[in-house]
């Protein structure tokens, strides 16, 4: 990245502005963006249409008939919390049941080979960490989770799969995430949750939002099947 004084303001087309507050992801930056988004939600400036918080930036979409780019950028920046006001949020940890390996996690053996660990060790490491939802994007409800142990980091598959079942839990490099919907994808699949991460009728429509704390609980195939029957399935 080019060195520039932060926050850096850049246009995203004619009706949105991206405000970048850091060059690198860190716990502090993440907390700052999470609280910034909350402050904007609590008192949205005139003409603001929506915001998209991301890893090191926040994008504000505005209605050009009600405000200008300069006005919205300064109004949003005014709500940026200073770093020393940032304190850790105290949301409860969301425990997501995951059936690891077997048909639900077909790449578990590849991951364990790559990392020089046994499959049980990979499961143990993945399910004993606590993660934060850094952002939701790429597809409806897809959480980018930060906080995974480097010991199980594994590069994406060389050839992405054309179809991944919904609920699949994957590792892509140093990140882990969950595919909420059936989709193509290149992450290493180590397990699957029976939970629905995206239900458009719900408010908000995603199980996880940026800022949430998450952990994984290993479950057996039987429990996966029982829980899968309990949750509503999308009509096809």
């Amino acid at each position: 990245m080019v060195d520039q004084p932060l926050p850096a303001v850049s246009l995203l087309g004619e009706f949105a502005v991206t405000l970048q507050i850091a060059h690198e992801v860190s716990h502090e930056v993440f907390e700052q963006i999470t609280q910034w988004a909350a402050a904007i939600d609590a008192a949205p400036p005139v003409g603001l249409r929506e915001i998209v918080p991301a890893m090191v930036s926040l994008t504000a979409y505005f209605d050009p008939e009600k405000t200008t780019l300069t006005q919205i950028a300064s109004a949003v920046l005014r709500l940026l919390p200073t770093e020393n006001r940032v304190t850790a949020t105290r949301n409860p940890v969301i425990e997501i049941p995951v059936c690891y390996g077997g048909t639900h996690g077909i790449d578990l053996n590849d991951v364990s080979r790559h990392c020089g660990l046994s499959p049980a060790e990979v499961i143990h490491i993945h399910s004993s960490g606590e993660y934060r939802v850094h952002m939701v994007g790429f597809m409806p409800g897809f959480p980018y989770l930060g906080g995974m142990s480097e010991r199980i980091a594994t590069p994406r598959r060389e050839t992405p799969r054309t179809s991944i079942p919904p609920g699949s839990v994957g590792i892509g490099g140093r990140q882990t995430g969950i595919y909420p919907l059936e989709s193509p994808g290149g992450w290493q699949l180590i397990g699957r949750t029976p939970w629905m991460l995206f239900e458009p009728q719900r408010v908000p429509p995603t199980l996880l939002v940026a800022g949430d704390r998450v952990c994984f609980r290993p479950i057996a195939v039987e429990e996966f099947e029982r829980l899968a029957r309990e949750v509503t399935c999308p009509s096809v």
Binding site: L12, A16, Q20, A54, M55, T59, G137, Y144
Partner: peptide, 15 residues
């Protein structure tokens, strides 16, 4: 010139 690692950020129709 410098294709460093970039973090995912917002994009829009027309980008």
């Amino acid at each position: 010139v410098e294709d460093s690692d970039r973090f995912s950020e917002a994009v829009v129709c027309g980008t």
